[in-house]
Computed example of a mutant assay.
Amino acid sequence: MRATSLGVKVSLGVIGVSVIFAALKMSQLLDKAKNYVSEKVTNMPKPEATVTDVDFQRVSRDSVQYLAKISVSNPYSTPIPICEIKYSLKSAGREIASGIIPDPGSLKAKDSTMVDVPVKVPHTVLLSLARDIGADWDIDYQLDIELIIDLPVIGNISIPLSQKGEIKLPTIRDMFSK
């Protein structure tokens, strides 16, 4: 009876070792598959964006509105939805305007799409920047924009943009011409 019992124990031990080796092989196979997919996703073309212009748009009773124009290229043969656009306008080291534009539309398939980002700056903030404005009647700015788009299968990806420059402040003529 002992010989049979020993044979069963040895057989169960061999099966246990075989299961462990199979699990290790499966783990290695899964790691290879993850690396392959990760490499393919890393090397696949992604939409690209650039800020093409930031310019004065209009004056209202409470704010000055600027318009940032962004060109976004879509390398895919299907339109891609833009989930949201986040923006932050900074001058003199501090944020003077920020916001989120929910669901601003889609990117055209295999084409470039112009996306408008309106930025409202309250008059009170502009008055506090009087030292920066000086004699040239403009403000130095940094505009940070984050486009969040929804790529099928992959999910949401973020395209960060940053632009530095000078924005002209509206003149009296600008206030009454629009």
Rank of each mutant, 00 (worst) to 15 (best):
A68C: 08
K34L: 11
D136K: 10
I139L: 13
T113F: 05
V37I: 12
V17R: 04
K178Q: 14
S71M: 09
E39C: 01
I80M: 06
T124F: 14
K178C: 11
W137M: 14
K90G: 01
I172V: 14
R58H: 09
S77N: 12
G16F: 08
V121Y: 02
D144K: 02
V37R: 06
P81R: 03
S98G: 06
G13P: 05
N156T: 03
T171Y: 13
I167Y: 03
S162T: 05
S162C: 01
L129E: 14
Q142G: 04
P104M: 08
K168D: 14
G105T: 10
S128H: 15
S98D: 09
T171P: 11
F21A: 12
I148K: 01
S128A: 15
I20P: 00
K168F: 10
I172R: 14
I139P: 01
V153P: 02
K178D: 14
K178R: 14
S27W: 04
E146C: 00
M114F: 07
L89R: 05
L126W: 10
Q65N: 12
V10K: 10
V119P: 00
V64D: 06
Y87A: 03
K25T: 07
Q142K: 11
K69V: 06
V117Y: 02
A135S: 15
V37H: 04
S63F: 08
V54I: 13
A68D: 02
K46S: 05
S11W: 09
I159D: 00
K69F: 06
N35V: 10
S98L: 08
K178L: 13
K164D: 13
I82A: 00
P79L: 04
S11M: 12
A49S: 05
I85W: 00
S106C: 04
S106V: 07
R131S: 14
I85F: 01
S27Q: 07
L127S: 15
I133V: 15
D111F: 07
P75C: 09
L129H: 07
N35M: 14
S106E: 09
Q163I: 03
L129G: 06
G165R: 11
V125C: 06
P152H: 08
V153M: 09
H123G: 09
D140R: 13
K34V: 11
A23D: 05
D174I: 13
L12Q: 04
V125L: 14
S60H: 13
N156C: 01
S71Q: 10
I85R: 00
M1V: 07
S98V: 05
A130G: 03
M26K: 10
K32F: 08
S128Y: 15
A97K: 02
K164I: 10
I159S: 00
R94V: 13
I154N: 03
D116A: 12
L127W: 15
D53T: 09
A109F: 06
V125E: 15
P79N: 07
S73N: 12
Q163T: 06
A49I: 01
I82L: 04
K34G: 04
P102I: 11
E95F: 03
S77A: 09
D174T: 12
V19N: 05
V117H: 02
K9Y: 04
G165H: 11
S77W: 08
P118S: 03
V125S: 12
A97S: 15
P79R: 07
N156H: 06
L161R: 00
D103N: 11
V17F: 08
V119L: 03
L127I: 15
